[in-house]
Amino acid sequence: MDNDDITLPADTLAILNEFLAERSKREHDEEQRMLNKTGKDAHFEEDWQLSQFWYSDRTKRAIGDALAKLVKEHNSSDFRIALLSCPSLYATIKDVHEQVNIFEYDQRFAAYGTDFVHYDFNAVDSCSDYLVEHHKRYDLIIADPPFLSEECMTKMSKIIINLQRSSASKLVFCSGEVVEPWLVANLPLHKCNFRPEHERNLGNEFVSFANFNFDHYIENNK
């Protein structure tokens, strides 16, 4: 007898279909539960191939405290923050302010739900409307470009110019000191006294840049 000729009684088939539907629903609900549980508390290891290096707890606290004061000064529910290539800041900033988006190439961070925006800084030269749905939306942008090169600084700067809500938007860059000439050639930034630290010691000297007195907010929160 050919297997294709085997059929189940209608009542048995109905029970089987009901069981399969319930199992599918349970699996879907469990996936959603785990996603919701993960949220901002997700923990990811650095991927050095993607040039990921996590900030130290001290640095995260310093930046988080500074941003808390900035958010309080603006006193607006529409105040929006963008984090570009600095995912280790996300949980800290999310505790400070609800309206934050994390722009990352690494798809693992989709665990952050609708706050996650997948992006590739290289795409900005091939599409004039790249990330157009996020243009002119952000009042504060923090960026930590993945590579210490003129090309990376130039492309990241183009994206940031598009993302800032206006020329009054505040910008903070954390990167190697070596990028200063390329960075200030594209954005109105100056080097700050604040020096971000990482969980692992890096060979390059890291500094911060901003278009406002970022040190004032850091120093007043020590």
Score class of each variant (00 low, 15 high):
residue 2 D to P: 15
residue 182 W to T: 00
residue 88 S to P: 04
residue 9 P to C: 12
residue 31 E to T: 14
residue 68 A to G: 09
residue 12 T to Q: 14
residue 5 D to F: 12
residue 130 Y to V: 08
residue 215 D to E: 09
residue 11 D to S: 13
residue 4 D to G: 07
residue 84 L to D: 07
residue 117 V to F: 03
residue 90 Y to A: 01
residue 115 D to Y: 01
residue 11 D to R: 12
residue 191 K to C: 11
residue 179 V to Q: 07
residue 9 P to Q: 11
residue 97 H to T: 06
residue 65 D to L: 12
residue 216 H to S: 15
residue 28 H to K: 14
residue 10 A to T: 12
residue 220 N to F: 03
residue 195 R to I: 10
residue 100 V to G: 01
residue 189 L to K: 07
residue 170 K to G: 01
residue 189 L to P: 05
residue 184 V to S: 10
residue 99 Q to E: 11
residue 149 S to M: 08
residue 65 D to F: 05
residue 127 C to D: 15
residue 58 R to H: 11
residue 114 T to R: 14
residue 86 C to L: 02
residue 179 V to C: 12
residue 194 F to Y: 15
residue 144 D to K: 11
residue 55 Y to A: 06
residue 15 I to T: 07
residue 102 I to N: 11
residue 47 D to M: 11
residue 8 L to Y: 15
residue 187 L to P: 10
residue 20 L to I: 12
residue 3 N to G: 01
residue 72 K to H: 07
residue 157 S to A: 15
residue 194 F to C: 06
residue 89 L to G: 03
residue 127 C to G: 00
residue 148 L to R: 07
residue 153 M to L: 12
residue 34 M to R: 14
residue 18 E to H: 12
residue 96 V to H: 04
residue 78 D to N: 12
residue 5 D to V: 10
residue 110 A to W: 00
residue 204 N to G: 00
residue 77 S to H: 05
residue 115 D to E: 06
residue 93 I to P: 03
residue 2 D to V: 05
residue 134 H to C: 06
residue 160 I to Y: 04
residue 12 T to N: 07
residue 76 S to H: 05
residue 138 Y to H: 05
residue 83 L to T: 05
residue 158 K to W: 01
residue 23 R to H: 07
residue 130 Y to D: 06
residue 10 A to V: 14
residue 192 C to T: 13
residue 187 L to Y: 04
residue 23 R to C: 03
residue 106 D to G: 11
residue 149 S to C: 06
residue 187 L to R: 08
residue 50 L to Y: 12
residue 44 F to I: 06
residue 107 Q to N: 09
residue 84 L to A: 07
residue 200 R to C: 05
residue 202 L to S: 08
residue 126 S to V: 09
residue 84 L to N: 07
residue 42 A to H: 10
residue 149 S to H: 09
residue 173 F to N: 02
residue 45 E to P: 04
residue 104 E to T: 07
residue 221 N to F: 01
residue 73 E to K: 15
residue 176 G to V: 12
residue 68 A to D: 04
residue 43 H to F: 11
residue 140 L to I: 13
residue 206 F to V: 07
residue 159 I to F: 09
residue 205 E to D: 12
residue 91 A to W: 01
residue 16 L to C: 11
residue 55 Y to C: 06
